[in-house]
């Protein structure tokens, strides 16, 4: 696929991530820091750190959700962050049903965003392969 078509695909992906509320202005902040700082791999480093977090151990629920909320805020993962806020409220209310529901939602949101981030990075790598100076 030509670089221009890949760029269009990447633009469309990013646009849909914003319009679906998956990411917020903090993600734009990361892109800006990458562009202004002249550090081509910065966004890749941050989103990779985000999805490599352990997401299975929910035993220490409240502390862990707090941690996930903080890292979601840093990467601009708006939906995950909002779900974590609801999740913590259920923890504090000691609502078992609420926690189970929030767990299902946060997992879904997390994996959905992770997949989109992975697609985004793959597209960027393919575009980069066409023109190594482009970033």
């Amino acid at each position: 696929m030509a670089a221009a078509a890949l760029r269009d695909q990447l633009t469309a992906l990013l646009s849909s991530m914003f319009s679906q509320g998956l990411v917020d202005e903090q993600f734009q902040q990361l892109q800006m820091l990458q562009d202004e700082g002249g550090t081509p791999g910065f966004v890749s480093e941050v989103v990779t750190l985000f999805w490599e977090q352990p997401v299975v151990n929910f035993d220490k629920v409240d502390a862990y959700v707090h941690q996930l909320k903080g890292s979601s805020a840093s990467v601009g993962a708006q939906k995950v962050k909002f779900t974590c806020m609801q999740f913590r409220q259920f923890c504090q209310d000691k609502s078992r049903d609420g926690c189970l529901m929030a767990l299902a939602v946060v997992r879904n949101d997390f994996y959905d965003l992770r997949n989109k981030f992975q697609t985004m990075l793959q597209l960027e790598q393919q575009i980069q392969a066409y023109d190594p100076k482009q970033q």
Partner: peptide, 12 residues
């Protein structure tokens, strides 16, 4: 304590 937050803070 969170590495991702340190990476973002350093760049910012």
């Amino acid at each position: 304590d969170e590495e991702i937050n340190r990476v973002v803070a350093r760049a910012a």
